[in-house]
Amino acid sequence: SEHYTFDGEEQAIRFMRDMEAKNLKYELQIHNGKYIIQVD
């Protein structure tokens, strides 16, 4: 699995939509205002 970190919500949402379009599962965590997305 890989981790991707985003500072902004818009970037994170765009990335998650992209993952959904590719049928990839992901998990979102928010730490200290950063959006951390783990992709299986």
Rank of each mutant, 00 (worst) to 15 (best):
S1D: 08
S1V: 13
S1R: 13
S1I: 13
S1N: 11
S1C: 14
S1A: 12
S1M: 13
S1Y: 13
S1E: 08
S1F: 13
E2M: 15
E2W: 15
E2A: 13
E2N: 13
E2F: 15
E2K: 14
E2V: 14
E2G: 13
E2P: 10
E2H: 14
E2Y: 15
E2T: 14
E2R: 15
H3R: 14
H3C: 15
H3P: 09
H3M: 14
H3L: 14
H3T: 15
H3N: 10
H3Q: 13
H3Y: 15
H3A: 12
Y4V: 05
Y4D: 01
Y4L: 04
Y4R: 04
Y4G: 01
Y4T: 03
Y4S: 02
Y4Q: 03
Y4W: 11
Y4P: 02
Y4K: 03
T5V: 14
T5G: 03
T5E: 12
T5R: 06
T5W: 10
T5N: 04
F6E: 01
F6Q: 00
F6D: 00
F6W: 02
F6Y: 02
F6L: 03
F6T: 01
F6V: 02
D7A: 07
D7W: 10
D7E: 10
D7H: 07
D7T: 08
D7I: 07
D7Q: 06
D7P: 05
D7M: 08
D7R: 04
G8E: 15
G8M: 13
G8W: 12
G8Q: 14
G8C: 15
G8I: 14
G8H: 14
G8D: 15
G8N: 15
G8A: 13
E9D: 04
E9H: 09
E9R: 10
E9K: 09
E9F: 12
E10G: 05
E10D: 11
E10M: 07
E10A: 10
E10I: 06
E10T: 06
E10C: 13
E10V: 06
E10S: 07
Q11E: 14
Q11N: 07
Q11C: 12
Q11M: 10
Q11D: 14
Q11W: 07
A12F: 06
A12E: 00
A12M: 05
A12R: 02
A12P: 00
A12G: 02
A12Q: 01
A12N: 01
A12W: 05
A12H: 01
I13K: 10
I13R: 11
I13C: 10
I13G: 04
I13H: 09
I13L: 13
I13V: 09
I13P: 00
I13D: 06
R14C: 14
R14S: 12
R14D: 10
R14F: 06
R14M: 12
R14Q: 13
R14A: 14
R14E: 12
R14N: 10
R14Y: 05
F15R: 01
F15M: 04
F15A: 04
F15Q: 01
F15D: 00
F15P: 00
F15W: 04
F15K: 02
F15H: 02
F15T: 01
M16F: 02
M16S: 02
M16P: 00
M16H: 00
M16V: 05
R17I: 08
R17Y: 07
R17E: 08
R17W: 07
R17H: 09
R17F: 07
R17K: 12
R17A: 11
R17P: 00
R17M: 12
R17V: 06
R17N: 08
D18Q: 12
D18K: 10
D18V: 10
D18I: 12
D18A: 12
D18T: 08
D18W: 15
D18S: 10
D18H: 10
M19E: 02
M19K: 01
M19S: 03
M19Y: 03
M19T: 03
M19C: 15
M19Q: 04
M19F: 04
M19W: 03
E20F: 06
E20P: 01
E20S: 06
E20W: 06
E20Y: 05
E20R: 06
E20T: 06
A21S: 10
A21E: 10
A21C: 09
A21I: 08
A21R: 10
A21D: 09
A21Y: 09
K22Y: 07
K22R: 11
K22F: 07
K22P: 02
K22T: 04
K22H: 09
N23E: 06
N23C: 12
N23M: 08
N23G: 15
N23V: 03
N23Y: 06
N23W: 05
L24N: 04
L24I: 14
L24V: 12
L24G: 03
L24P: 01
L24S: 04
L24R: 11
L24T: 06
L24Q: 08
L24F: 09
K25V: 08
K25Q: 08
K25F: 08
K25L: 07
K25I: 07
K25G: 06
K25A: 09
K25T: 10
Y26E: 00
Y26F: 11
Y26P: 05
Y26D: 00
Y26A: 10
Y26S: 04
Y26Q: 00
Y26I: 07
E27D: 09
E27R: 13
E27C: 14
E27G: 06
E27N: 12
E27M: 12
E27V: 14
E27K: 13
E27F: 13
E27A: 11
L28A: 04
L28I: 09
L28Q: 02
L28N: 01
L28P: 01
L28W: 10
L28D: 01
L28K: 02
L28G: 01
L28S: 03
Q29N: 09
Q29Y: 14
Q29F: 14
Q29W: 13
Q29A: 09
Q29T: 14
Q29L: 13
Q29R: 13
I30N: 03
I30H: 05
I30K: 05
I30V: 10
I30W: 05
I30S: 03
I30L: 07
I30E: 04
I30P: 02
H31Q: 12
H31E: 11
H31S: 11
H31P: 01
H31D: 09
H31G: 04
H31T: 11
H31L: 13
H31M: 12
H31R: 13
N32D: 11
N32T: 03
N32Y: 06
N32P: 02
N32S: 06
N32Q: 09
N32V: 04
N32F: 07
N32G: 10
N32W: 05
N32I: 04
G33C: 03
G33T: 03
G33I: 01
G33L: 03
G33E: 04
G33H: 05
G33N: 06
G33D: 05
G33M: 03
G33P: 00
G33K: 04
G33S: 04
G33R: 03
G33W: 02
K34M: 11
K34V: 11
K34F: 10
K34I: 11
K34G: 02
K34A: 05
K34S: 06
K34L: 11
K34N: 04
K34H: 09
K34T: 08
K34P: 00
Y35D: 00
Y35V: 02
Y35K: 00
Y35L: 03
Y35Q: 01
Y35G: 00
Y35M: 02
Y35N: 00
Y35E: 00
I36V: 10
I36K: 04
I36E: 05
I36Q: 04
I36D: 03
I36A: 03
I36N: 04
I36Y: 12
I36H: 11
I37F: 10
I37W: 01
I37S: 00
I37L: 06
I37K: 00
I37P: 00
I37N: 00
I37E: 00
I37T: 01
Q38L: 14
Q38R: 15
Q38M: 14
Q38G: 05
Q38P: 01
Q38H: 14
Q38A: 12
Q38N: 10
Q38S: 14
Q38E: 09
Q38W: 15
Q38F: 15
Q38K: 15
V39I: 10
V39W: 05
V39D: 01
V39N: 02
V39P: 03
V39M: 08
V39K: 03
V39L: 09
V39H: 03
V39R: 03
V39Q: 03
V39F: 06
D40H: 15
D40A: 13
D40F: 15
D40E: 13
D40Y: 15
D40T: 14
D40W: 15
D40I: 15
D40L: 15
D40M: 15
